[in-house]
């Protein structure tokens, strides 16, 4: 554990709390992509299968349980409790275009040819693109509630912080995880456009609006 990873994980934790706060306080999941949330639940469930047979640490265990539970809870809120506030007609990204290629990539790039390792690889690739339906929706509507942009910023910060973490681990532990690093860099790059608008508009007190 190093400071970058800890801050990254805390940022990830914060992003989920912000998302829950957004849904509860506005009593609405408007502006949130159900598809992205469903992909995250898939990511956590396929990645954290090792909960059942591999003990890393209490920290690791608690975080994994939290990420699985909170992502499923968000799906419940969107699908049942606040269902009328979710508009599927603007959440139109075709997730099969993500799931298929990620499955193929997992078959090509993995550390061991076992089911848990293939699912782990799949989850890494899927996480790297899981935000796309959300960003696509943002692009379509051209605007977002400020709290939703804070959610995305915290999520992006989590990914960005994992990069110095890998550099640090490379130097101090001689540890490199090429699959996670490659997918992680792609994932972080997807946020660059969003971050530009977030820093130049939202943090200056303006509404998140994309140029027409």
């Amino acid at each position: 554990m190093n400071i970058f990873r800890l801050l990254g994980d805390l940022s990830h934790l914060a992003s989920i709390l912000i998302l829950l706060q957004k849904i509860q306080s506005t009593r609405s999941c408007r502006g949130i992509s159900f598809k992205t949330q469903a992909l995250y639940a898939t990511v956590f469930i396929t990645r954290y299968l090792d909960l059942f047979y591999d003990w890393v640490s209490l920290y690791n265990f608690v975080m994994k349980i939290f990420f699985i539970a909170s992502s499923c809870y968000v799906l419940y809120l969107m699908k049942y409790k606040y269902r009328p506030t979710h508009d599927p007609s603007i959440d139109t990204f075709r997730v099969e275009y993500l799931l298929g290629p990620c499955a193929v990539l997992a078959l090509l790039f993995h550390y061991r040819f076992t089911l848990p390792e293939l699912l782990w690889s799949f989850s890494i690739f899927l996480e790297s693109v899981a935000i796309l339906p959300q960003l696509f929706m943002l692009q379509r509507t051209g605007e977002a509630e400020t709290i939703t942009t804070h959610y995305l910023a915290a999520l992006g910060a989590y990914r960005a912080l994992y990069i110095p973490n890998w550099i640090y681990r490379w130097f101090t532990e001689d540890m490199v995880d090429p699959i996670a690093v490659t997918a992680g860099i792609v994932q972080t790059a997807l946020y660059l456009d969003f971050f530009y608008v977030y820093f130049t508009k939202v943090l200056q007190g303006q509404k998140f609006e994309l140029p027409a």
């Binding site: 990873r5 994980d9 990830h12 990645r47 090792d50 591999d54 890393v56 640490s57 690791n60 975080m63 994994k64 990420f67 550390y111 782990w120 994992y162 973490n165 001689d174 540890m175 490199v176 995880d177 090429p178 996670a180």
Partner: peptide
């Protein structure tokens, strides 16, 4: 090298 003890990152 890849961590032989499994995946310790979240």
């Amino acid at each position: 090298a890849h961590d032989e003890h499994g995946h310790d990152e979240l």
